[in-house]
Simulated assay, not measured.
Amino acid sequence: MPANCPLCGRPPSGIINSYTAQEVAEFFTSRVLGQERCDRMEAILHRLWGSDTVRVVRCDPCAFGYADPFVAGTAEFYQLEAPDTPYPRDKWEYAHTLRRVSDRLSPEASLLDIGAGKGYFLSRLIDRGWKPGNLMATEFSVSGGEAIARLGVECRPTDVRSLDGGGRRFDAITMFQVLEHLDGYDGLMEAVARLAKPDAHLFVAVPNGDRIAFNEHNGLLPDCPPNHVSRWTPKSFQVFADKYGWTLEGCELEPAPTVAGEAVYGAVNRFIQRSHVRGTWARAVYAGSRPFRGRVNKAVKALGVATSPDAWGAAATVARAARGGGGVPHALWAHLRRAG
């Protein structure tokens, strides 16, 4: 029987997906890139889960999805899966949060960015007059920490749950595309409360749970643990806020993609998904692109997508679904306020 919901403690309502360690290892470290690396990943997953299988289950009362076992990926997992994550410079939630922050706080305020990547959001704050000395970040990646240090911002390569802020407390705390990677909510929110001022703001962005369901229903990339171990909706954020004594000030979805945007996304996403399946055109293209680097590597893959009937079929399927019910937003944003 799957474990009870991490938010409400109720038994799960049903199983969304189930994966073996071998399937997940192939997904995160394709055998095209080397058998030894894939075998190492499979061993990591066995240790992490204590079994050969992980499930994604749902809690209908919370509108929440979670991994069972509910165990986040370790540093060992991420170092093997993506040693240098390509952080995007711009995200919808950056601009959205900046507008809210500018309305509520002055550039003299303090802010902690948890899992700050390469500091692109912090850089935007500094461009708006925020003092680097009033900012702080956590980030595990070496490249991210170095980029944040160049901004003049203190960065700690540590889990926020064990962060020693030296007595500092912050007017605002941000977590962009971080919460879905984490387990242990009691410890997380205890740390956030310790680091937050009495009336602090908490801004969070996660993948939209309905988008994940849309992708999987249409044969695109699955959302496999232990990379993401939770699936969020506005209702689950309300449960989360209530549980930990915060007020949910707002919960908004990123603007939906256009039908054309969905078609392109569907083609590329399906091609990547098929690259993990033996005997497919996508797998052959990925294997053939290995000797090349940079733009040539990307060009070979782009040609592979353009000549893939399966990718074109997915583009048509996703575009039809978007035209019928509207495009599905990729990101979900929440603004929580701590009670004074």
Rank of each mutant, 00 (worst) to 15 (best):
R10Q: 14
S13I: 09
G14W: 08
I16K: 09
S18M: 14
S18Q: 15
A21V: 10
V24L: 12
A25W: 01
A25D: 02
D39S: 10
E42G: 03
E42F: 02
W49D: 03
G50K: 04
V71Y: 11
A72P: 12
Y78Q: 09
E81I: 04
A82E: 12
D84K: 11
D84Y: 06
P86E: 10
Y87R: 15
K91R: 15
W92T: 09
E93P: 06
V101A: 04
S102D: 15
E108W: 06
E108K: 15
S110A: 13
G117T: 04
G119A: 04
Y120K: 05
I126C: 13
G129N: 14
G133Y: 04
G133F: 03
G133I: 06
N134K: 11
N134Y: 03
L135R: 00
F140A: 13
F140I: 11
F140C: 06
V142R: 15
G144V: 02
G145R: 02
E146K: 12
A149S: 15
E154M: 12
V160G: 00
S162H: 12
R168C: 09
F170L: 13
F170K: 06
I173G: 00
I173W: 00
M175S: 02
M175P: 00
K197M: 12
V204I: 15
V204T: 05
R211W: 14
E216R: 06
E216P: 14
H217N: 11
N218L: 15
N218H: 15
G219K: 08
L221D: 07
P222W: 10
P226I: 03
P226V: 04
N227S: 09
H228M: 10
W232I: 03
W232A: 01
P234Q: 12
F240T: 00
A241F: 00
D242W: 09
Y244D: 07
W246I: 09
E252G: 04
P257A: 10
T258S: 15
G261S: 08
R278C: 05
A282Q: 03
A284E: 14
Y286C: 02
Y286D: 02
N297H: 15
K298Y: 09
V300D: 10
W312Q: 08
G313L: 11
A314D: 11
A315V: 05
A315P: 04
A316M: 12
A322C: 07
R323H: 10
G324N: 13
G326K: 05
P329C: 11
A334W: 00
L336C: 10
G340N: 13
